[in-house]
Amino acid sequence: MKPSSLIICRCEEVTIEQLEQAYQTGSCTSRQLKMKTRASMGACQGRVCRQLVDAWVHDKDPDSPHDAELLSYRPPIRPITFGQLAKGEL
């Protein structure tokens, strides 16, 4: 396997190559890359790869801000069934 086909996001099987293509076409922040490639948008909600995406963006542009709001968390933050959701009220 070529280094460029290294997977960064396991859930969505997004490779470094795909991040690079997205970056070249104007997706420059973690959030833009997520929207474009689905990296950190899968079943783990980015718990595994958001640090990697962040590190990758910083390697590209060391001056980019470390902004937690770029990749925020939204409920439900754990998998639940519709039944459990119906019993709760949220």
Binding site: R10, C11, E13, G42, A43, C44, R47, V48, R78, P79
Partner: peptide, 22 residues
């Protein structure tokens, strides 16, 4: 098996963070 590619997956984090073992 990965839902889209069918690639085999196993246990990864063991504490409920990664969802790989579902």
């Amino acid at each position: 098996k990965h839902e889209e590619s069918g690639n085999p997956r196993g246990l990864y984090c063991a504490i409920g963070h990664c969802m790989e073992c579902r």
